[in-house]
Simulated assay, not measured.
Amino acid sequence: MTGYNQLKSRSRSDYPYMLEYRTRWSDNDMYQHMNNSIYNFLYDSVINTYLIKHCALDPQNSSQYGMVVHSHNDYFASISFPAVAELGLRVNKIGKSSVTYEIALFEKGVEGVRSVGEFIQVFVDRETARPNAKGMGLEMREGLQRIAVGLPPSKL
């Protein structure tokens, strides 16, 4: 597990994949900052955008899909409407059928990370909702390897 201070010092350059999100008025809570549940929504969205665009995931037809089995978030500063969020994505660990993502949320035009989250997905068979004995597909693994940070090259 990465330490709190190390996460708090993350920069955009720590993330190989970035995606923008324009905040909405409805993202704010009664304290005028983005509601905690929206962070998870955004983290899930950047992961699935990457999987669809770069890992051959077809949400309607792929034989496997990623099921979130763990999520966690550290908050450092708030963001609120009408800010534009910049979401950074990287892979910290790839297993046989699992992947550990790190996601950072930045505010466009502002230095310093606002939050850093972790999602762990297990790729399961669509028919059984159980991990496939062969693990994740080759295209998925190769796509994830492209944004892996600090991992030895995969022996595909």
Rank of each mutant, 00 (worst) to 15 (best):
T128R: 02
S13I: 07
I52Q: 06
Q6T: 08
V91K: 08
R130M: 12
H70K: 10
A148P: 02
T100R: 12
K96Q: 13
E107W: 11
G88Q: 01
R146Q: 15
M140P: 08
E139C: 13
G117S: 03
V116R: 00
R12G: 09
S80T: 15
Y65L: 09
E20K: 09
I52E: 12
T128D: 00
D74F: 02
F106D: 10
K8I: 01
P59K: 09
I103V: 05
N5G: 13
G117Y: 06
G117A: 03
E142T: 09
G112I: 04
G95C: 01
L42Y: 10
L42M: 00
E111M: 05
E127G: 00
K53M: 15
A104M: 06
N48P: 08
I120Q: 11
A83H: 08
Y39W: 05
N28A: 09
G137Q: 15
H33R: 02
D44C: 04
M34C: 07
A104G: 13
P82I: 00
Y15F: 12
N28P: 10
V68T: 10
L87N: 04
E86G: 11
S13Q: 15
G95M: 05
R146D: 14
M136R: 05
G109C: 04
Y15E: 02
P131I: 03
V110W: 07
F119R: 03
H70G: 09
S80C: 15
R90M: 01
M18W: 15
T2V: 03
M67L: 08
L7T: 07
L105F: 11
V116C: 06
Y21S: 12
E86W: 12
Y21N: 14
M18Y: 12
E111G: 07
L89C: 01
N5F: 10
Y4W: 13
S98N: 09
G143Y: 03
L87D: 00
T2I: 05
E118V: 14
F81I: 10
R146Y: 11
Q64G: 08
N48W: 02
G150M: 01
I47R: 12
D14F: 07
Y15P: 11
N92S: 04
D27I: 07
L144I: 05
V91C: 06
S45C: 12
G150V: 06
E107K: 15
R90I: 00
T128V: 07
S71L: 12
K53V: 09
V149Y: 05
T49L: 05
S9D: 14
V68G: 03
T128F: 04
R114L: 06
N48G: 02
V99G: 03
A77E: 15
G3S: 12
